[in-house]
């Protein structure tokens, strides 16, 4: 029998950091589903290293700027893996939490603020992106593709990059009228970024207009920082510049996402 009598009531306090309770929710679910994700978010980037880095790399006689193609490619793949996991986790799951399984509405009935609901889910997305890239970094280090102890700097960089892409994607997914829009996001933003933002070949070989576009993508800034870290060389652009640019995406994305969430949840 449940004691719900007024006398016996222990009044619940508010959670100390409400967003952590939200994060805990996603982690409980993830404990059960992580195996399925290992394949796609970790093993496949590794296969890409083998098939592309070693395979195609063997045909790149000159290397890139004097570097082995494999070594040059790996940091790019680390950044793009982080981006893809971050965006992947910020699209269908967010849409579903609004429209299909409605988790956000269940959460908004609890003593959580919109910002807590958003921050908790974002934290989980960062966790996913971070663990995937950390494991990937470790494996590529075993391949001998990591050439500098500076490589550990990759970890905070991918966190920032993930936040810079995930936050605006949260806003987009909250706004998207149907899941077709998510498909369009991949087709017109994620895939072109992956292919042209300096992951597979240097941005400098793009024609000038496209090159400017590539520089504007958050991915390029992440790639350049990761590359500098694993190769132990100076990045092409100033480090504070990169960090500020990514932070600007993150902050703008957060503000947009909070507005979009509020529009859906507080009506």
């Amino acid at each position: 029998m449940v004691d719900v009598s007024v006398a016996g009531r222990v009044r619940p306090a508010l959670p100390r950091v409400p967003a952590l309770a939200v994060l805990a929710h996603y982690l409980v679910g993830y404990r059960r589903t992580w195996r399925a994700g290992v394949f796609s978010s970790f093993l496949l980037p590794v296969l890409t290293v083998v098939g592309f880095g070693f395979g195609v790399g063997a045909y790149v006689d000159q290397g890139v700027g004097g570097l082995r193609y494999l070594d040059w490619l790996v940091p790019g793949l680390i950044a793009s893996t982080a981006m893809q996991v971050a965006i992947g986790e910020s699209t269908w799951p967010v849409l579903s939490n609004f429209r299909w399984i409605k988790t956000y509405f269940a959460q908004s009935a609890a003593p959580l603020r919109v910002g807590d609901i958003l921050a908790g889910h974002l934290a989980f997305v960062l966790f996913r992106a971070f663990t995937s890239t950390a494991a990937f970094l470790l494996v590529t280090a075993l391949f001998g593709a990591v050439r500098s102890p500076w490589a550990v700097a990759v970890l905070p960089v991918v966190l920032l990059l993930s936040l810079a892409v995930a936050a605006p994607t949260f806003a987009f997914s909250a706004w998207a009228p149907s899941d077709s829009y998510l498909a369009l996001l991949f087709r017109f933003a994620v895939i072109p970024m992956t292919l042209f933002a300096g992951v597979f070949f240097p941005v400098e070989s793009l024609p000038s207009g496209l090159r400017q576009l590539a520089y504007a993508t958050p991915l390029w800034h992440g790639v350049d920082l990761c590359r500098a870290a694993t190769l132990g060389v100076a990045p092409q652009w100033s480090v504070p510049g990169h960090l500020l640019y990514l932070a600007a995406w993150a902050i703008a994305g957060w503000l947009l996402a909070r507005r979009a969430f509020r529009r859906e949840l507080v009506v």
């Binding site: 149907s178 895939i191 042209f196 070949f201």
Partner: peptide
Amino acid sequence: AYWLVLISGFLEPVLYLFSIGIGVGALV
């Protein structure tokens, strides 16, 4: 938006062709 998804479907292999075929191709 589904229509745009349908119509733009042909774009992907073309993007790959430009990126890998031409971009990486310049290295190979």
